[in-house]
């Protein structure tokens, strides 16, 4: 097993705000790692430090086998970065944007690469259209095509599917898995749980610290969370009552049903005992990743506030 990313002691502050704190992260070559965490937890900052867009205050390690601080230029050349906001030129056409990226990376067989990329995107017929006139889903596909035009070994995606429809998201993830199968290492930050589950690995950070790491199953298991699901008329209305009971970490409606979770099984049982009566039907279920993350988020807040 080789590591595409292996950094430790990563720190970054903006003024008094310590955005990334002593972060250590290893990412296996060829894996897709989901980068999760609440807004402002330091995901974007970490990605930007890895691709040389921000200078870390401290930290060391290797990215693609290179010292990521000293050889930032060399790392840049082998890294693709797709920004959270669409950051290609809206007043250039699709083909002109790709052509610019190819030139700035000094790629050989430029015309061929751009042509192939357009073909893959299915945008050959619309290549003279301005990038700004594309819909959200197409912009995102174009941005991905631009980020991988130079065949990077490491691909960093910052919330790539925000505001994109489900079909386009599905296709996007198929593409990411295709790239990963071809040996590309991918780091993707996201807020979507279904996307997190599509990743080989998950890294959960909150308030600049790495809180959980591993496969989705492992993260769920490690959480020690016990979840009960109540179904029946009015089940979802009980959330507010149950949330305040001792032993209940959270109670959240899921459509007409209710998920109640806690870490202490006995206390949780005691808390829901008064509600164990018809017409409600209670079953113990596997906690979802979302349950775990909401738990992690509130846990992290407790620690850092």
């Amino acid at each position: 097993m080789t590591l595409a990313v292996d950094v430790t002691g990563l720190n970054k502050s903006f003024g008094a705000h310590h955005v990334v704190q002593d972060l250590a992260i290893q990412i296996e070559t060829g894996k897709i790692t989901g980068f999760l965490g609440p807004n402002g937890s330091g995901k974007t900052t970490t990605l930007r430090m890895l691709c040389g867009l921000l200078t870390p205050d401290s930290g060391e390690g290797r990215v693609l086998g290179l010292d990521f601080r000293k050889d930032a230029e060399a790392v840049k050349r082998q890294t693709g970065y797709m920004t959270q906001r669409f950051s290609l030129y809206e007043d250039l056409s699709i083909a002109e944007n790709l052509d610019f990226v190819a030139r700035v990376h000094e790629l050989d067989r430029r015309r061929e690469r751009v042509r192939d990329s357009l073909d893959r995107l299915g945008l050959t017929a619309r290549k003279t259209q301005l990038a700004g006139s594309l819909s959200g889903g197409w912009k995102q596909r174009l941005a991905l095509a631009a980020a991988i035009l130079h065949d990077p070994k490491l691909l960093l995606l910052d919330e790539p599917t925000a505001g994109v429809d489900p079909k386009a998201r599905r296709e996007f993830w198929d593409e990411i898995h295709g790239l990963s199968a071809g040996g590309m290492t991918v780091m993707v930050s996201t807020h979507y749980m279904d996307e997190a589950e599509r990743c080989h690995d998950i890294a959960y950070i909150a308030y600049g610290k790495l809180i959980a790491r591993g496969t989705a199953e492992a993260v769920i298991d490690q959480s020690g969370l016990v979840t009960f699901r109540a179904e029946g008329p009015g089940a979802d209305r009980l959330a507010r009552d149950l949330a305040t009971k001792p032993g209940v970490v959270m109670a959240a409606p899921f459509g007409a049903a209710l998920h109640v979770s806690g870490v202490d099984r006995a206390a949780l049982d005691a808390a829901i005992a008064p509600y164990r009566r018809p017409p409600l039907v209670w079953t113990e279920v596997q906690p979802t990743l979302e349950d775990v993350f909401i738990r992690l988020m509130s846990g992290a807040e407790d620690t850092f506030q």
């Binding site: 867009l53 230029e73 840049k76 890294t79 906001r85 669409f86 950051s87 700035v104």
Partner: peptide, 13 residues
């Protein structure tokens, strides 16, 4: 302002 500098800076330019 448009965010394109972020992409430009991520290139080796």
């Amino acid at each position: 302002e448009r965010g394109t500098m972020e992409s430009l800076l991520a290139t080796p330019a």
